[in-house]
Amino acid sequence: MSSAKQRRLASAVASIQQRYGAQALVRGGDLNGRTLPHIATGFAALDAITGCGGVPLAALTLLSGRSTSGKLTLAYKLLAQAQHSDAQHTVGLLDLSRTADPDYVQRCGVDLERLWVARPVAGRQAVNLLGDLMQRGGLRLLVVDSLTDLAAAPEGLRSLHALLPHLAQLLRTSGGALVLLDEPHAPWLRWLNLDSSQRVRQAAALHIEMRREQWLRRGDALVGYRAQAQVLKSRWVQGGRSTVVEIVFNGTVRASESW
């Protein structure tokens, strides 16, 4: 199948699942019966290509993309999915940029009562807090927003690198999932492992990169955007597979602001 046809098929699948639910269409390969502990992303097409049905539990996932790529939306959807799987589950958001918008987090389906928002001072304190939250907090999922903010602070990146060797054990013990958000780096920097996230990439079990492709319009109105989600690395499947996700704005705010 040509890549254009593949993209059209993926787009059609995404539209149907967005409209009728994730279970409306499932790939045959998903019925293998092999399941790894995971949190579904809420986008079935993406779940199908990660190799574990979503993002893995007890492991690190790196989610990269620039602004308006949809990575934050995906992260919030993951928080909601992690909560839905069990009424007891609490999730966390390490909000280093202090820009979390509870109104929109809630619209993504997150139960705010079971969401802890951590706002430490960036740097070593944030990294230490990350470790403590995974160890003591009993969180099903912790989203760190973002690696860029962590690395920008003095000693932040160094502290994180020091934590990485212990992180695997921490995550295995806690059983929770850890998702780090990151900005994309130039491919040549990635290939040469010269970017600041390279050690985190090496430690990650899954790396997904998001990229906005086009706006979605209804007449003149902008109603969302279509983004490509590419699995750059997966411990369970060959990297490089991609799919399309559509992010449609939830227009439940008053008429004068449909965002």
């Binding site: 949809g70 934050l72 939306t73 919030y76 109104d103 929109y104 619209r107």
Partner: peptide, 8 residues
């Protein structure tokens, strides 16, 4: 789904 700067 957005980032919000409360102080702008």
């Amino acid at each position: 789904m957005s980032r919000l700067w409360p102080e702008g």
